[in-house]
Design a protein around this nucleic acid. Structure first.
Length: 876
RNA sequence: GCGGACGUGGCGAAACUGGUAGACGCAAGGGACUUAAAAUCCCUCGGCCGCAAGGCUGUACGGGUUCGAUUCCCGUCGUCCGCACCA
């Protein structure tokens, strides 16, 4: 019987409307069902969704629909990370207000997302640029400020003197502003900071509990936090007059065990002592300037030679009053790590060694490998950083470095210099406090007021929101809020005198550090409804790109702790499960010219294959094109495929299904036209097979088969139900897809028999059951096709509200197992035997096999290994 | 430089906890149906030998442990990612 091809265009819109009208994806906070919160990283409203979004949201939607079918009360919201620079850039380029540009983009993208048929609760939607959202964020700011979690200090920033703006490190390219091209200056500005470094220890320790996070992300965060244990140690200045009165220099070291190998001290160019010397000596000043200039260019750092400036200062070795070492100012010492000063042990640190060789400083080995000979062990051009045994270290000789560390730490902690212990054990972190001030318009205003008399005065909570003005000029360089004629002028809330608003806005990372909490009660009149937030959080499954492995996730973890401290939530870790999905990549095509490639979009390319060689040519001009490497879809390489085009020609189900098939979800997936067509063939195949059998099956009650072909059908279906459930739990969507193909392949013949009227009652019943299972199994991935076929098969209600099918455990294990039989570890045959056959029975059966008898020659085998239900190995 | 991940057919991949390597898909080749095309269906598809049955070989490379290794260990090569003068 012929059946019309499936028309996704009509069906998909129809079902999207049905779901929306029935409001089945709107989540009730009061449902008694167990909660499940699945969240995909919310998008920046750039204007159009891209294939990366399709992949991300397809995955999240599988989880959401699956968990819903499993009886969970699922929260699956969507919103917009809507503040940020692109809106300002667009405003300048297109003369459109950042707000209008942003909300227009949101409208366009919402429409696109809706066409994907995602089971989202749109009633909770918000954008971070909504006044209500940033009002609540300002309230959080005030609470954090009151709790001492935010402070203000001077800090160096990258300043673009042409655009008159602060640049993020990523916006500084080769020492120049990314847009103006002007040489970037280092400026000191007063900035607001979150005290994230106070939480370093806890943020690090809690990583161990995040066992549903990728190991890779945990490791990246661990390295980013960068804990090191060492000793803070003061060296007495031998000649205080040369140091302008300072009496000691404090250094930080993780290797106090190498103290007897010390041959110099080095301080950063920004060290207070260096600044003091520079004030008196132009040569020092010149050297320090040179260090700072080199420091602005990241590229220069990699190749920078270690250079130093020898000061007139000498310091006394902490363990030998007769021993002094010189003090250098050095370009490789950083002021913002440790104390900005180090002691150099050239034998145990490559940088120190390079430095010592350059300035002819002594190199004394103090640690050698345990099996080396102390008399002959020398350091030439490679420092020895490994473990081993102490040498040339007086009474420490023979100890391990660990023991020497403790011994020296104990000795110097007990010794006093001035009126204080000379040394103290100290833990250092690489993690810096998070600067949140941005000198921009399109962000949440920082709600404080500066008063000449009262200083910094928080905006009273009743005066929130501090709303962005609409009438701004973006063409003029600098911060639009600062040069707005009236906005910043207010009266001081404390004394009533004329005062000024803070004109800085918040870093957009602030917006995304708590949105997951806001979704739990998005219209509440405080940042969260603490009881509701605590019931929903943590997010059970968070899905997004690996590019947020450090900053966004770390900031969100900090924010959750800070919100707990201020009573907004009662948990520490916001995301229980994290999944980082791979990118969508595509071949690139370019015109032949070697010098300047012209990239050509896939939509304009025709691929031909002859004699195993793929060739590309331009669809319009016929010009031969070079097929380039496979890369992340990007505008610059033009290798983008527009989701709208795909949904338009194949439907959302095909796009979703293809995004989930083939590649493991954490790996990159290659978008190919052939692959999409393969996915679409499957959509049509399911439709055809079920559709042709539907006239019969819709008249039949589903039942499990008990014998013959009916039993085979039921076994296959039940096994797949079990396997796909397990696959989705593990987010192994590619495997779930493979099993669907497999099941549909085995059902093809029986379903054709049913359609042709060649099936008996039992087979029909088994096929009905199996067909229903297929529909329910494809539903999380291809929800529209599922609804359509569900109806076709004569079932009631919507798949979206139908529970996940149960499988019969007795059907998923076979009575007989076929085990490979190996002789000396090589497979020589098979044995099919009762599943529960004991060792002796297996042994007897195996020894009776012809090829085994030939191999053993009738003799008893040397060894006989049986792994039950797995394999047999006979060693002869 | 430091840290980590990975390396399996022409391609994307699968293989539970050390137990039949290559499921499933794509591409390719052959065939059926068709006036033809599309669609659909059937067959082949790691390499070598063989008419066949079957055998040998094969998971980057070289070793090792084991009855048995894609999986564990050591070394080499390659690719990718993160951090980076962090004391």
């Amino acid at each position: 019987m012929a059946i019309e091809r499936y028309n996704p265009k009509q069906a998909e819109i129809r079902w999207q409307r049905m779901w929306e009208e029935a409001r089945i994806f709107e989540t009730d906070n009061d449902s008694p069902a167990p909660k499940y919160y699945v969240l995909e990283m919310f998008p920046y409203p750039s204007g159009r969704i891209h294939m990366g979004h399709v992949r991300n949201y397809a995955m999240g939607d599988v989880v959401a629909r699956y968990k819903r079918a499993r009886g969970f009360n699922v929260l699956h919201p969507m919103g917009w990370d809507a503040f940020g620079m692109p809106a300002e850039n667009a405003a300048i380029q297109n003369k459109v207000h950042p707000r209008d540009w942003t909300y227009a983009n949101i409208d366009a993208m919402r429409k696109q997302l809706k066409s994907m048929g995602l089971s989202l609760d749109w009633s909770r939607e918000f954008a971070t640029c909504d006044v209500d959202y940033y009002k609540q964020q300002q309230a959080l700011f005030l609470d954090f400020l009151a709790a001492g979690l935010i402070y203000r200090r001077n800090s160096k920033v990258n300043w673009d003197p042409v655009d008159m703006t602060v640049l993020a490190n990523e916006q500084v390219i080769d020492g120049r502003g990314w847009r103006s091209g002007a040489l970037v200056e280092q400026r000191e500005l007063t900035q607001w900071f979150f005290r994230i470094s106070d939480f370093a220890e806890d943020l690090l320790a809690s990583l161990d509990e995040l066992d549903q996070w990728p190991e890779k992300v945990r490791l990246m965060q661990k390295n980013w936090i960068g804990k090191s244990e060492g000793l803070s140690l003061r060296w007495e200045i031998a000649d205080p007059a040369a140091a302008g009165g300072a009496t000691d220099i404090e250094v930080y070291t993780t290797r106090p065990d190498t103290l007897y190998g010390a041959s110099f001290l080095a301080i950063a160019a920004d060290h207070p002592l260096a600044k003091e010397l520079a004030a008196k000596d132009p040569a020092v000043a010149e050297f320090c300037d040179q260090c700072r200039r080199a420091g602005t260019s990241l590229a220069a750092l990699e190749t920078a030679e270690k250079i130093g400036f020898k000061t007139a200062i000498n310091v006394v070795h902490p363990l030998d009053p007769e021993w002094t070492v010189p003090v250098y100012i050095a370009n490789f010492v950083l002021m913002d790590y440790g104390t900005g000063a180090i002691f150099g042990c050239p034998s145990g640190d490559q940088r120190d060694l390079d430095f010592a060789r350059k300035y002819n400083l002594p190199v004394t080995p103090v640690v050698m490998p345990a099996d080396a000979d102390a008399a002959s062990f020398v350091i030439t051009d490679t420092a020895y950083v490994g473990d081993g045994v102490m040498i040339n270290s007086r009474d420490l000789d023979g100890m391990t470095p660990d023991a020497a560390f403790s011994a020296i730490a104990a000795r110097l902690e007990a010794k006093t210099l001035g009126n204080a212990p000379q040394a103290a054990r100290k833990t250092n972190f690489r993690l810096r406090d998070w600067g949140l001030s941005r000198q921009r318009y399109w962000g949440a205003p920082i709600p404080v007021i500066h008063c000449d008399d009262c200083g910094v005065v928080p905006v009273p909570a009743k005066d929130l929101p501090v709303q962005l003005p609409d009438d701004i000029t973006l063409e003029k360089p600098g911060n639009p809020l600062d040069h707005h004629p009236t906005w910043k002028h207010v009266d001081c809330p404390a004394c009533g005198k004329a005062a000024r608003r803070e004109t800085d806005t918040m870093d957009t990372f602030v917006d995304s550090s708590w949105y997951f909490a806001r979704f739990t009660a998005p219209r509440h009149d405080t940042p969260t409804d603490p009881a509701v937030a605590s019931a929903w959080l943590p997010v059970d499954q968070y899905i997004g790109g690996i590019e947020h492995a450090i900053l966004h996730l770390l900031y969100s973890r900090f924010f959750t702790r800070a919100m707990r401290q201020t009573g907004h939530v009662d948990l520490k870790e916001p995301f229980r499960g994290l999944f980082t999905q791979g990118m969508v990549v595509h071949e690139t095509y370019r015109t032949g010219g070697e010098g300047k490639p012209e990239w050509v979009a896939p939509a304009e390319v025709v691929i031909e294959e002859a004699e195993g060689v793929r060739r590309a040519r331009h669809a319009r001009t016929g010009e031969a094109l070079t097929i380039g490497s496979i890369e992340k879809m990007s505008k610059s390489k033009k290798n983008v495929v527009d989701p709208d085009d795909i949904i338009d020609s194949y439907g959302a189900d095909t796009a979703r299904f293809f995004m989930l098939s083939d590649s493991p979800p954490d790996r990159d997936v290659i978008w190919t036209e052939a692959g999409v067509e393969g996915a679409h063939r499957f959509v049509q195949r399911v439709w055809r097979l079920l559709g042709e059998a539907a006239p019969v099956l819709s008249q039949v009650e589903a039942a499990t088969g008990t014998a013959g072909q009916a039993l085979t059908v039921s076994r296959a279906a039940h096994k797949t139900v079990k396997a796909i459930g397990e696959d989705i739990e593990k987010l192994a969507f590619n495997k779930a897809v493979a099993r669907l193909y497999e099941l549909v392949n085995t059902l093809a013949a029986p379903l054709s028999d049913v359609a042709a009227g060649k099936a008996d009652a039992e087979l029909k019943a088994a096929c009905k059951q199996a067909a229903n299972m297929v529909v329910l199994l494809i539903a999380p991935m291809m929800p529209h096709l599922a609804e359509e076929t569900w109806k076709l098969l004569g079932n009631d209600g919507m798949v979206a509200t139908t529970p996940w099918p149960d499988y019969d455990a007795s059907l998923v294990t076979d009575d007989q197992v076929t085990m490979p039989v190996q002789i000396n570890g090589k497979k020589r045959g098979e044995l099919t035997i009762d599943r529960n056959a004991d060792q002796a029975a297996v042994e007897q059966a195996v020894l009776a096999l012809d090829f085994v008898r030939n191999a053993t020659g009738g003799n008893p085998p040397r060894k006989f290994i049986v792994v039950p239900q797995r394999i047999v190995n006979v060693v002869v």
